[in-house]
Each structure stands twice: as C-alpha cells, then as structure tokens.
Computed example of a mutant assay.
Amino acid sequence: MPLVVWPAALAMWGPGDMSSKHAHHAMHLMLCRTGTLSIRVDSAKKDTRAAGVLVGPDVPHALDARGTEVVLLFVEPESHDGLRLRASLTESVRLFDEAARDALLASLPREGPIPHAAIGPWMESTLEALAGPTTTSAPRMHPRVRKLLRHLRSDPAPEDTSLEALAEVAGLSSGRLMHAFTESTGVPLRPYLLWLRLQRAAGAIASGRTAGEAAHAAGFSDSAHLTRTFRRMFGTTPSFLQRRSQFVQAQAKAPDAS
C-alpha cells in the first residue's frame, strides 16, 4: 500500500468503491486511473460523472467508483497545502475530465502496481498543479520544531504527547511552541498530531496488523476509537484500507505467480 508520511497528507490507491452520502474534514482528491466515477454533492438530485473530483472540507457527497481503480489523496484543510487547495476551489467540488485526469496522472503508470517511490513526487507535483492563488508563503522550519518532529516520528512513537511534554522536548514555552510549530509546518500542533497518529495506524494496517494492533501502535484507546476517527477524517474505515492493502499486495505478487 503506497503511503507517504507528510505532515498533513495521505495517499493510497486501489479498487474504486461506492459510498453513501457522507462528509469528512480532510480534503479529498479522487482520480480514476481509467474510466469515470459518479458524484452527488450536497442537495443535488442527480449524479455527475467525471474522471476525477476534488472535494472541499466537510462537504456532504456520495461517490461511486466501482469498476475502476482510483488514486486517492487526502489533505488536512488547515495545512499549508490544504490552504492552497482550498484557494483553487470556486465551488464545493472541482471536477476533472479525462484530459485533466490524464495530465495529473501522467507520472504514474496507467495500470498495474504503482511504485511506492513514485507516490511522493506525484503528491508534490499534483498539489503544485492544483494550488490556487494564496498569499501564504512556504513555511520556514524552526530548529526546535525540527527537533520535535524527529522526536514525534521516532519508533516507537512517544507515549506522552501532552503540550507540556512536547514543549519540554523542544525547549520552548508552550505558547511559543504552538506558534513556532504552525509557522514551521503550516498546520497547528494538534491537527498534526492527529494526522501523524492516523498515518501510523494506516501504515500498521497496510503492513498486515489488525485494527486493534494498529490502534494501540498509534495511540488510540481501541479499534472503535480508531474507526470513529478514520470515518470522521476520511469518510471511510480501517477495514476499507485493509481491503485496499490486500488488493495492492495481490497485484504486486501477480507477476511472480505467472
């Protein structure tokens, strides 16, 4: 399962699925590798077909991408990248036709496995291509924040992520840390910590661990807590990620079986 640990983004790919009407806080880019999907937004009475869609934060929508493979990108809307994406939206969603989809996916293979190493550059180029006008400049990393990030990304994950404990690690006051962290990463500390925990959980699930094991590894109280948070942020569940991971693993092994 292609997963890239960015401060506030998560990418994955696999078979398309159908979702009932829902909303989630993360911005959501879905691109069909081939074919099209249908989407219904807000109170619209009819579905619209497109080769891809970018959905704004907390926008009620329903999707049907069955019968095709999709590439998904979730972005924290309060992050630097999220603000740039939000600036590109003139409505609650942005639709992409086949030509626009092909341009966005040009650096990735059109079918079969997607190399993990290709996902990071694709995310970067896609966010740049879709970014709207914004006066927000690229953040400059504070050295104490860089130190804290190394601590947060260490393995195993630190158990105490209270503001007081993190301020002590960084060597800054609590108030100064919150300000410096947002300036340095483009996302406030608490949303970043949530994204990091979700990314840890997603990585654990993709590696074959159960939802309960993933929840424990990422600092959630139990699998139910992880599932609720996944659904709120991404509009899906850890079990959905497990199915995608199994699909990707089966695709990767297919050439060996022939």
Rank of each mutant, 00 (worst) to 15 (best):
A131P: 03
L72S: 07
L148Q: 09
L63E: 11
H225Q: 12
A11S: 10
A218E: 09
A254F: 02
P238C: 09
R140D: 15
R190F: 03
S20E: 03
I205P: 01
T236A: 13
A129Q: 15
P133A: 14
F74S: 10
A50S: 14
E124H: 09
L89S: 08
E111M: 15
W122D: 14
A100L: 02
R231F: 14
T229E: 06
A215T: 14
E91P: 01
M1W: 00
H179Q: 12
R190V: 03
H225M: 04
G171P: 04
E213H: 07
T237L: 08
H28I: 05
A201S: 09
T237G: 04
G132H: 06
L10K: 02
V41C: 11
P2H: 07
L10F: 02
P109C: 09
L104C: 14
S258H: 06
D47V: 06
D97K: 07
S88N: 03
V55N: 05
T48K: 13
L29D: 02
G235V: 12
A211R: 02
A214R: 09
P60D: 11
D256L: 14
E213Q: 15
G208R: 04
H216S: 13
R176M: 10
V59H: 06
S258Q: 07
S88K: 05
Q246K: 03
L152G: 08
A224G: 05
A252K: 01
E69W: 00
R144W: 00
G175I: 03
R146L: 11
A26I: 02
T237N: 08
S162D: 08
H216Y: 01
V41T: 14
L189I: 04
S38C: 10
V145D: 13
E111P: 00
H142W: 03
L130K: 10
